[in-house]
């Protein structure tokens, strides 16, 4: 996993609640066996006017001009703001892969679905929960101000608006540590291999039917 770089990014407001992972990346793209290349199909059904299938040349497909990501002023956005329960539904990790592949580094919402939230952090994608009122403010500012950018500082746990307003966010310390250092969580867990083995031996003695 790459280290999370604190930086400024262009913001795109996706003014919707309950955005599910089927919408983030439709099922026909889950047939891939790699982790990369999902960006062009992010929000596929909302983003294009035709029906997308794997293997299509996405650059030739008709874009839906009404979908916010397609508006020229939001091109190259790195920060996505959405309303509550973002990422609900399927556990598909293709959803954060697609968001990241598109170029997003940070997703801000008033709440996230549990599995999606976990999946983001496993891939170095920062998911930030902010109070619904603040999300509403940022959403409106980013709609009315062209070129609206937010500076995300993970170390300090702050977001700074173009008007120099600083907003603090909370993050689990372990997740912050992993993100800042680009740590491989499996490697960290394997440092406890002896504890796992000791637990396993005890567990096997008590519930032998779970083994074999």
């Amino acid at each position: 996993m790459e280290k999370f770089q604190s930086r400024e990014g262009l913001v795109v407001p996706l003014d919707r609640a309950n955005v599910d992972t089927d919408a983030i990346i439709p099922k026909q793209f889950l047939k891939a066996i790699g982790r990369t290349g999902f960006g062009p199909n992010l929000f596929d059904e909302w983003r294009y006017l035709d029906h997308g299938e794997p293997g299509m040349d996405n650059s030739k497909r008709p874009l839906n001009p009404d979908f916010i990501l397609n508006r020229p002023r939001y091109r190259g956005a790195q920060v996505l703001i959405a309303r509550e329960n973002f990422g609900c539904g399927s556990s598909r990790e293709h959803a954060p892969w697609a968001l990241q592949d598109y170029g997003f580094t940070t997703i801000i919402a008033s709440s996230f679905a549990d599995i999606f939230f976990n999946n983001c952090f496993k891939n170095g994608l920062l998911a930030i929960v902010l109070d619904a009122k603040i999300v509403d403010e940022l959403m409106k500012e980013s709609m009315t101000t062209e070129g609206y950018r937010l500076a995300v500082d993970l170390e300090q746990q702050t977001i700074t608006t173009p008007g120099r307003k600083e907003i603090r966010f909370e993050i689990d310390p372990f997740r912050k540590h992993c993100l800042l250092n680009g740590l491989d969580e499996i490697g960290l867990s394997l440092e406890r291999a002896d504890s796992i083995k000791a637990f396993e031996a005890k567990h096997r003695a008590v519930q032998p039917w779970l083994f074999g």
Partner: peptide, 12 residues
């Protein structure tokens, strides 16, 4: 769980 966690469980 997601795929990264699938890998985590396989490995640990």
């Amino acid at each position: 769980i997601g795929t990264s966690e699938v890998e985590h469980v396989l490995a640990t």
